[in-house]
Each structure stands twice: as structure tokens, then as C-alpha cells.
Nucleic acid binder design. Structure first.
Lengths: 222, 222
DNA sequence: GAGAAATCTTGACGGATGTCAAGCAAAGTT
DNA sequence: AACTTTGCTTGACATCCGTCAAGATTTCTC
């Protein structure tokens, strides 16, 4: 019996799949099936972050896991479903990245500094994931299959940035002069630019990113 | 004798290659060899703009030209050299896109309006080329081979934007508050964001792009 | 512990891809 | 007109790809 069905492919797989709930297998709280899917997704993300979408194969993903290449088709119907699952998993990871500093900062200056620092930190420590994101977003401009998930993540990121800039405005005692979607586009451009410089080996990339964010954010007010 | 040598691969191929200059073939002012390279580059760009880097094959490029698949290796050493040539050709095309309106505009308001309109126009009429650019820039984050050319184009685009914003500041009677490289990153983010929306079918994408540019540019001053 | 269900490995398939070599066709040279 | 160089086509190659099926292995159930 093949466990991969088209019905499952439609689920939001970040939530545990309801695969064994009909029968009462109480082996583990989280189903092993979902464990493996996540495990493979993590291996896939590592591979994608290293090679990019164009040169990532299912065999290479399996090589970066502890399984053989055939297992991918046991847990995913095809390559697109695997990558889609990866993308959704990735999304769940990075949504709350700045919520801590938004909640904790007590002044607009503190928020700005901590936000800029956090941006620099994630650029440096998670560069492969970020370049993968830009890669997949570019892919979605060609391939409609990826577009829904990419747009969903883009909206999530926009909300994330929106919470930052709106709290920043609030703490500064001013309103936002630019709407949130534009703020996101602006900051995303600055981040992507800095990421490319960083990956190129530009040693000022992180300082430049920090300086640019500190420079730009105040101009979004009033 | 194979005309493709590693020495030629290093040349800036937008300039005519010095292939027959030793012997005086005065057939045409522009060498036929470079004509074909350009011809193939145009076919390749059309294919790349349609399919993206990941799914563009040499055979598909040849299919979009009037030649057979083997001819690619007569004019280019390998796939990377072809794509590199394409990228350089592309660069030469788009450098002067805004120079006209920079020279002609007599007020900061006129410059801003015409610049925003031109951005919208090129987004709509040359969307495949623009998404290809974002695709290749993402590729360069993974593949070092593409990085020098991508960075060169990025610098050229930055200069192009720099001429716009500096002239805008001059006409407005103010100085730029943000350095040119940051201005480029900001506007690039806005443009990329609008392009994705446009390709998704968002019918407000072009109006949004225009509005955002008109909104943002004044904030780069003083 | 035997049988059943699940998980995983292995190997194979058809197809696509980059590359290259051999040879045909056209153009140029003398 | 014979010969040479250049341009291009055809077909082949090794390799890699996604996918799948058959069977071995492990785990679960009773």
C-alpha cells in the first residue's frame, strides 16, 4: 500500500498528518511518518541551501540524509511536493524571528538597534537559507507551482516586518509614512543586496547592512 | 581547428572578438563569428527568460534559434560561457534605459514622474528579462562562476539608478540623504516586489509600483 | 513467536542533458 | 576548377535525472 496519496499532498504538512488516527497507534505522540517527512525536509533544505534549486537532485538530498534515494518517494509523491513541504517547514521556522525584540524593546532607538543587529546576525548565520529563499522566489516567477507557497511566505515575512516597523513608529511617537508592504519591499531589497555582498566575501557587508537599516528606518516615519 | 579557445572565453564579448584581424577578411564590417554569437545569445536570452535558468537546456536554446543543437559548441566552449555571454549582452542593452529622461527632464517633479512611468513600462514589456536577471542573481549566490558578471551588472545598474537619483536631488535643490548604493538596493527591492506581483496577475502591480516610487524617492533627499 | 503491516534498499526504466567527434555543405582562396 | 578553410548537422557517448517496482528488513500486532 502506497502511503503517499494526492489527498495528503494538499495538506498543510507543518501540522501532523492525520495518517494513523483511524487506528490507535500510540507509539509516539508525534507520528513517525511526520517525523521522517520533517527529517527529509531538513536534509533537503540543507542540500538546497548549499546547491540551489537548479542543481539539487533527490539523490543528493538522500545522500545528505541517512536514507537511500528511494525513500523519498515513500514519503513524498514527487519532487515538487517535497520542495513545497520544505518551503512550508522553513516558513514556520522564521516567522517569529523578530517578535522577541519587538515585545521587549522599550524605546524606538533600542528597537532599531536590536532589529538591525538581528538582521545582520541572521544574514551571517543563516546565509544558505536566505539565498535559497531568493532562489525559490525567483523560481516562482517562472513556475506557477511554487507561486502559492512563495506568495504565502512573502506575506508572512511582510507581516513580520510590519510588526517591527509599526512598533517602531509607535515607540517613536509617529505614524508610518509608508505603508507596510512598501516598507517590506524596501528592507528586503537592502537585505538581498547585503546578502549578495556577504556571500561575495565583502567584509563590510554586515556593517553596511546595519548602517543602512539604521539610516532608512527613521525615514519611513511621519 | 576549433575556434573556441580559452583565451577567447576571457574576452569581453560585447566588443567584437579579434578573430580574423590577423588576416584581412573584409567580408563585413562586423565579423560573422560575432554575429552568430550574438544571434545565439538572443535566442538563449529568449529561452532563459521563458523557462528560467534551471530548466533551460542547450537543445532548447537551439530549438529557439534557426540552428541545430551542435552549433552551440562551435561558438561557445560550454554552457557557462554561453550564459555569461548572454548576461554581458543583456547588460549592454539596458544600461542607458533612463539616460534620456535624466537629460531631458527640467524639474524634479517631471523626472520623478517619467522615471516611475519608465519603470512600470519596462516591468510590463520586458518582464521575462527582469525575472531572468533576478534568477541569475540568485544563481550567483550559489555558483561563483556567475558572480563576477552578475556583480558587474549590479554595479552598472546601480550607476544607472545613481544618475537618476542624483539628478533628481539636483533638480529638487537638495542633497541625497542616502548614498547611491542604498538607493539602488531600496528601489531594486520595490521593483522586484512589483515584478512578482505583476507576474502573479495582480492588476494593481503597475499602479502600485508607480505610486511607491513616487512616494519613496522624495524621502531619499535632505 | 508467527503473521501482518510498515519501512527501507536496491536496481532498473525511459528520458533528458552536456559534450564531442565525424562528416557534410558552403564559402573563400589560389 | 581544385583545394582549403569555415560553418553547420547529425548522431553518438556517458552521465544524471525522476520515478517506480520488487523484494529485503524492521516493526507492530495478536
Amino acid at each position: 500500500m502506497v502511503p503517499v496519496t494526492s489527498a495528503r499532498a494538499e495538506e498543510v504538512t507543518v501540522e501532523p498528518t492525520a495518517r494513523h488516527t483511524a487506528r490507535g497507534t500510540r507509539r509516539t505522540p508525534v507520528d513517525k511518518y511526520d517525523e521522517r517527512r520533517t527529517q527529509l525536509a531538513i536534509s533537503a533544505l540543507a542540500t538546497l541551501g548549499e546547491l540551489g534549486y537548479a542543481r539539487t537532485s533527490l539523490r543528493e538530498i538522500a545522500n545528505n540524509s541517512e536514507f537511500s534515494h528511494g525513500v523519498v518517494h515513500y514519503y513524498f509523491a514527487n519532487k515538487v511536493e517535497l520542495i513545497t513541504h520544505c518551503v512550508r517547514y522553513y516558513k514556520a521556522q522564521c516567522v517569529t524571528r523578530y517578535d522577541g525584540l519587538v515585545a521587549e524593546s522599550t524605546s524606538h532607538a533600542e528597537l532599531l538597534t536590536r532589529f538591525a543587529d538581528k538582521l545582520v546576525e541572521t544574514m551571517m548565520t543563516e546565509a544558505p537559507m536566505h539565498r535559497l529563499w531568493y532562489d525559490l522566489r525567483a523560481q516562482s516567477m517562472f513556475e506557477e507551482q511554487f507561486r502559492p507557497d512563495v506568495l504565502a511566505i512573502d506575506a508572512t515575512l511582510q507581516d513580520m516586518i510590519g510588526r517591527v516597523v509599526e512598533r517602531y513608529a509607535e515607540l517613536a511617537g509617529h505614524a508610518l509614512a509608508i505603508d507596510v508592504s512598501t516598507c517590506y519591499a524596501l528592507l528586503d531589497g537592502v537585505f538581498e543586496n547585503a546578502l549578495l555582498a556577504y556571500l561575495t566575501g565583502d567584509e563590510h557587508a554586515s556593517d553596511d547592512l546595519r548602517a543602512r537599516v539604521v539610516e532608512v528606518l527613521p525615514r519611513l516615519l511621519v
